[in-house]
C-alpha cells in the first residue's frame, strides 16, 4: 500500500475534483429537483435520463462521477483516522478503505453498464 502512495493521491485528487465540480449539480438534479417534480414527471425524467446516458460518453461521465469520489473519501478518511490518533493501524485501515473504494468502483461499472 505504501509503495502506491502516488496512485492513492492522484485518485484522491481526481475524486476531489469530480466531487467539487460535478457532484453538487448532479446530486441536486437527481436527488432534489427530479423527486420534487421541478423538471417534469417521473416518466419524462426517466425517458430523458435514459436517452442522455444511453451512449458511452454519458456512461463514462457516470462512472467517473460516481466512482472517483469513493477513492477521494477513502484516502481522506485514512488520513482522518491517523489524525484521530491511530497511526499504527494505518496499514489495516488504509487497505480496508481502498478495498471498499475498489468494490464501489466495480459495482458502479456494473450498474452503469446495465443501463
Amino acid at each position: 500500500m505504501k509503495r502506491l502512495e502516488p496512485l492513492w493521491w492522484l485518485l484522491f485528487g481526481a475524486g476531489g475534483f469530480v466531487g467539487a465540480v460535478l457532484l453538487p449539480a448532479l446530486y441536486f438534479m437527481v436527488a432534489v429537483g427530479f423527486p420534487l417534480g421541478w423538471f417534469g414527471d417521473p416518466v419524462e425524467t426517466f425517458l430523458r435520463m435514459r436517452t442522455l446516458f444511453a451512449n458511452p460518453v454519458g456512461q463514462l461521465v457516470l462512472v467517473v462521477g460516481i466512482a472517483l469520489p469513493f477513492w477521494h473519501s477513502a484516502h481522506h478518511l485514512r488520513h482522518f483516522v491517523i489524525e484521530l490518533g491511530f497511526p499504527h493501524s494505518d496499514r489495516l485501515v488504509g487497505s480496508l478503505l481502498y478495498a471498499l473504494a475498489g468494490v464501489g468502483t466495480l459495482v458502479t461499472v456494473g450498474v452503469v453498464g446495465a443501463l
Binding site: G19, L23, L26, Y27, P42, M49, I66, A67, L77, V111
Partner: peptide
C-alpha cells in the same frame, strides 16, 4: 472539511442507487 470529504461518497452512493433504478425501468425510477 475531512468529514465533508467522506460525505461525498454518501452522495455517490445515492447516485448509484439512482442509476440502478434507472436501469430497472420506469417503475423503479418512480
Amino acid at each position: 472539511f475531512a468529514m465533508a470529504s467522506g460525505i461525498l461518497s454518501l452522495g455517490s452512493l445515492v447516485l448509484l442507487v439512482a442509476v440502478s433504478a434507472l436501469s430497472k425501468g420506469s417503475q423503479a425510477w418512480a
